[in-house]
Amino acid sequence: MKRSLLGLPDHVARLLVVFVVFIGGAIAVRTFVIPASLKETGRHRTSTEERESAKEPKYAGASQCGTCHDAESAAKAGGYHRNVSCETCHGAAKIHADDPSTGTPPAPRTRGFCPVCHAYDPSRPTGFPQINPAIHNPLKPCIACHNPHDPKPPVIPTECTACHGEIARTKAVSPHALLPCTTCHDVPEQHRVSPRTVTATKPNTKAFCVKCHGKNSTVVEAPKIDADTHGEKYLCWDCHYPHLPEARSWTDEKL
């Protein structure tokens, strides 16, 4: 028998060469051709994660802005907008945060922007401050009255009608038209700023109405009743709506 390579029989040696070529080729393909990410046996792939992680953010994050914009972040810190990120209104500002000389973020000063959140929408949660843009000071930019970094009802609410218009219109045609709201309601100063958390007082005793409407009252124009017999156990506003009490003529007929 002819002997050649490594002393093996010739036909075995040739077979061996074929095997070495195939296996060597397989090793070469696996090592150099197939990308490393395809050889991972885990259920995740590092290359995709790395590619996703390498993407550049466009929003800088709320903590960035205060390092330069002290005044605005200080104003915002105590106001109702304290939890609203700067970039909610000013847009993505990573470019500007990285290099403050470029990419100044826009400030939405037009009337169109604030109603994105604050226009009345019946689906919005109760208590969220909303206005009807069509009737709320039309054509006036929001920032003329409200500071967006520390929004409050503007200086107004000196008169109650600003918010309590329906009551004011009712009262205007009633015998109580000439009485200021503060005759019956004590309005804390804070009620103008936080109308829902600090509320005005309401009378809670019969004696309050009797001050004017009792038979011993010195208020000439007020209809008088005998507090001991009139209304029994009921409070006055169980029958009379204080913002539109019954007209005097009707009361006179009864009396």
Binding site: E52, P57, Y59, E87, A92
Partner: peptide
């Protein structure tokens, strides 16, 4: 992606970042 590139840099996802009411 949960803004994977942001959360890997310890930033919030963009939608969470801008949500005005949390």
């Amino acid at each position: 992606t949960f803004c994977y590139h942001r959360i890997k840099k310890d930033l919030l996802p963009a939608c969470v970042e801008v949500c005005p009411t949390q």
